[in-house]
Design a protein around this nucleic acid. Structure first.
Lengths: 144, 144
DNA sequence: CCCCTTTAATTAACATGTGAAGTATTTTTC
DNA sequence: GAAAAATACTTCACATGTTAATTAAAGGGG
């Protein structure tokens, strides 16, 4: 049954929204089992991959705004997954570090996370997957 | 200065996040002037394009979860931009309709909204723009 | 050294995202 | 035709998104 309705699948903002939902859905489910949100996971991964760093850099690497990150770091601190120390050189800053418990969570879920990414790459095919990333990155360059 | 860090621009979830931010940023700014959020705008557009309908359909068309939509409809009702009536055939349902004031907001911003979309299309070029939409839609089909 | 600006992080206030539970109504099934 | 299952919201609780205001500490002239 054909329709004259404008297809929301041809609206770029909505298509981006849905695509992200499809990609993140399985990962969110996996993380829910260990009571970690998608954003908390991103913060832990940044700390594990790049080492201890200040909140401003974390926010930039994990694509979070500082007010959100402040709350997330509080939660992660309560869970004992991160550690905070004052920066000796600049007392406005802190140095955030992932704890052993935090690393444990990374180790227990990283494999499944990588497999989820590989599944998507396989579904599209490597070339189209890379092409998609290129197109998305080009949208970002528009502002800057 | 080269770096061994994994580029977040090659992470699909983060690339999708940033791309959506680039696309929506200008539109959000435009809507902030009339005190309307991005989500409220989507609801109004759905009602204007497709006519009166029940919340479940609105949620589907505007890509919102029902709990979010409940709150959004309350706000839009308070602003006098929509109207709600009980469905005579099924008392569980309601019929939501956009008001004249709601239509006024659409008219005052639709042109700028369309121009923003055209700007992106022009930046990528029509073929690559369509290719991007195709790739994004393919990600959705993975679940179903 | 003091005033001014900038920067880092937090807090506040409001809106949405998200999963789970609750309520009312309709449909199904035996 | 009543109990059971499904549907259409709504409400709750918690987490994040987003903008603006706030606090504390550095830096930069004069």
């Amino acid at each position: 049954m054909p329709s004259d309705l404008p297809l929301t699948s041809r609206s770029l903002p909505i298509a981006l929204l849905r695509a992200r939902e499809s990609v993140m859905g399985p990962i969110r489910t996996m993380l829910a089992d260990v009571d970690i949100t998608e954003q908390q996971w991103r913060v832990l991964r940044v700390l594990q991959e790049e080492g201890p760093q200040d909140p401003t850099r974390i926010a930039h690497r994990a694509c979070l705004l500082l007010p959100s990150l402040t709350r997330i770091l509080q939660k992660l601190g309560e869970k004992g997954l991160i550690d905070r120390q004052p920066d000796p050189d600049d007392r406005r800053k802190q140095i955030i570090r992932i704890t052993d418990d935090g690393l444990k969570i990374i180790r227990n879920n990283l494999t499944a996370s990588i497999q989820a990414a590989e599944r998507i790459r396989a579904h599209l095919g490597p070339e189209r997957y890379e092409a998609l990333l290129d197109l998305l990155n080009e949208l970002n360059d528009m502002d800057n």
